[in-house]
């Protein structure tokens, strides 16, 4: 196990270094001088002398070789100094501190919903394979995987907010401020964010359950005279859960991506919306910082899942 953990950590570290390289050099692909792009955002700096420009270039460290700039940027990121937003004129860390909790709050609820609902639905479909629950669930999971999150959001708003008036159209309130209003506001976004997760988890659960059910030890359990409930929950469920766990890592990545769209539709002031607005206001410092933080987050979650996976299933460790 120690060897496995060590291997995984080294791999993750390598991946982390590559992530920083990708983010840094992707931003450098921007056509033009980063300094001039920066200046283009600020009208009062437009008529600067060349000397003042050089001065500014030195201040930002843009006169140094590119590798030095990269190292400085990584060193800054390690100190949690991700730069200052051009548009908001605020420290990027501060901007994120306000928005990340919102995205993660919604995300965690959506992850919990997709995992529990997905497992239960997939289990039902597998146990009643070919019967009516399966016949209804299977096509629905296909729709759930392919329905565009933003379109689902629009339909939900139209039906439940505009036509029926049961839930608010959009917005976000902190649950600590007004719990009831906050909960009413997050119902629709959470449905949108978890649609893909529920459907893909249910599909994975169904197929891995169908692989476990014909196994010998399940037949033995039946032969022992155990009840169906005990066989499904104690024997079959445990083993078929293993592939479902890896889906959580994928699910988290898809969900963060989906939050870009869902937060736009529901006007939720989270990271996804900050990302979109920063892209449109060409606030590359924010885009760079957000891309880095999100990728590192995904990496960490996948690392934890990998380690957990290795602990759960010894076969993985020796492979």
């Amino acid at each position: 196990m120690t060897k496995y953990i060590g291997q995984r950590l080294v791999q993750a570290l390598l991946t982390l270094i590559l992530i920083t390289l990708i983010v840094f050099f992707m931003m450098r692909l921007l056509p033009g001088d980063p300094l001039l792009i920066y200046l283009g955002q600020r009208a009062e700096l437009h008529d600067m002398t060349d000397e003042a420009l050089e001065e500014l270039r030195k201040e930002f460290g843009l006169d140094k070789p590119i590798m030095v700039q990269y190292v400085n940027w990584v060193a800054g990121a390690l100190r949690l100094d991700l730069g200052t937003s051009i548009f908001y004129r605020e420290d990027v860390g501060t901007l994120m501190k306000e928005r990340f909790p919102i995205t993660l709050y919604l995300g965690c609820i959506a992850m919990a919903v997709s995992t529990t609902a997905g497992i239960l639905i997939g289990l039902l479909a597998a146990v009643r394979r070919g019967a009516w629950p399966d016949k209804i669930i299977s096509p629905l999971t296909y729709i759930g995987v392919t329905i565009p999150a933003f379109w689902l959001g629009i339909i939900l708003i139209y039906v439940f907010a505009q036509k029926l008036g049961w839930l608010p159209v959009s917005g976000f309130t902190s649950p600590f401020k007004d719990f009831v209003q906050s909960t009413r506001q997050i119902i629709l976004p959470v449905i949108c964010l978890s649609a893909f997760g529920v459907a893909s988890t249910a599909r994975q659960m169904r197929s891995s359950m169908l692989e476990v059910l014909p196994q010998d030890y399940i037949r033995t359990a039946w032969a022992k005279g155990l009840s169906e409930r005990v066989i499904i929950i104690k024997h079959a469920l445990k083993n078929s859960l293993i592939p479902v766990i890896t889906l959580i890592g994928v699910g988290f990545r898809v969900m963060i991506g989906g939050s870009v769209l869902v937060e736009t539709v529901f006007a939720i002031p989270g990271v996804g919306r900050l990302m979109v607005s920063s892209i449109f206001s060409q606030d590359y410092v924010v885009v760079q910082a957000l891309t880095l933080v999100i990728a590192v987050l995904v990496l960490l979650i996948n690392l934890v899942i990998d380690l957990f996976y290795g602990w759960l299933d010894p076969r993985i460790r020796y492979n």
Partner: peptide, 17 residues
């Protein structure tokens, strides 16, 4: 590892950027 690194970016986010 390069592929792992790319996989850490949500598809839509990478495409967006």
């Amino acid at each position: 590892r390069l592929m792992d690194a790319l996989m850490c970016f949500p598809n839509i986010l990478l495409a967006l950027v």
